[in-house]
Design a protein around this nucleic acid. Sequence first.
DNA 1: CCGAACATGTAACCTGTTACATGATTAC
DNA 2: GTAATCATGTAACAGGTTACATGTTCGG
Lengths: 171, 171
Amino acid sequence: MLTELEGAILTEIGFRARHTAFKVRQAFRESPSSDWQGSAGSVYPAIRRLTERGLIEMAAPQDGRGTRLLSLTPDGRAALLDWTRDSTMALSIGMDPFRLRAGLWTTMAHSEQLAHAEHMLAMTEQAIVSLTGYKLRQDKLEAIQVELAIALQESRIRWIRNWLTELRSAG
Amino acid sequence: MLTELEGAILTEIGFRARHTAFKVRQAFRESPSSDWQGSAGSVYPAIRRLTERGLIEMAAPQDGRGTRLLSLTPDGRAALLDWTRDSTMALSIGMDPFRLRAGLWTTMAHSEQLAHAEHMLAMTEQAIVSLTGYKLRQDKLEAIQVELAIALQESRIRWIRNWLTELRSAG
DNA sequence: CCGAACATGTAACCTGTTACATGATTAC
DNA sequence: GTAATCATGTAACAGGTTACATGTTCGG
């Protein structure tokens, strides 16, 4: 069984041509979703673990910097496929900072709710613009992730609009 | 600054009448989102930390079981409000197991994609039914969270349907 | 030549999970 | 009386973040 981080790492190596730990880290750091920061302390140990389990092959250092080319072993590819097809996990409802807070917003005073809703609406729309721009510069796999991130922001917008409508009709 | 767990705990105590650590744990365990398991090893220490920071008031044990009633201090209420209104955090894109996997699905063989897409569609629809049933039994705050979880599943469904359409027109 | 980017890795810390330990209260 | 539930808490472990440590390669 792979953790979410391990699955993501194998995906980067096997399907997005991130052939070094450094590039995997870079991909995580640049990703607009806050899944992981791609900290050295998580990525290097995880790659070592995956290597020890025979899922990643690590070539000998290539240059003076110690650059090590990574690739998936057949076992690694199989493990990644299993992880990918785990539909129970895929359908689970992850952490969502928006969802965690939304309930409390509706307990604020009416005028404060209105102001906050409008602020959130504007900021979410801006987030979508920036995600859309980011998506264009990505390969297909990452583009799909961004597409889904945009879909999430759009569903937040729908919720906010609905909230605003109720507020205005109640006002 | 509060962490996501701390914010959620203060919300349970202050706005959902979970007046003991035990009931806070219960609320987390029963929640359909996989935010936290509500393990004793996370909740009790977090509540102790929040008490030490003066955000929670812990009454003396009430009975032989050592039941301790919890309530928010004015500082706790203020900290929770700050946490709630942190729109940068609220709009961030959390971990999503679906989003992490979706890209890889589109690299599978055509027939496999079709089968998987149909399977995911059916399972997601079922997840919505069960969320809808759960929502009815909840107070307003939790109902909103479930509402947003349903919206997430619906946006996944839209994506799957779109994927299916493309697959069928390409087949 | 010099700064930015490339590249690897470790150690201390924090926090969440699992498993353990203990006991009281309640419903049947 | 006894099983389920209520109730608190700790210890070992796992894994992610931050900060540190080190050295190379490339572009101007």
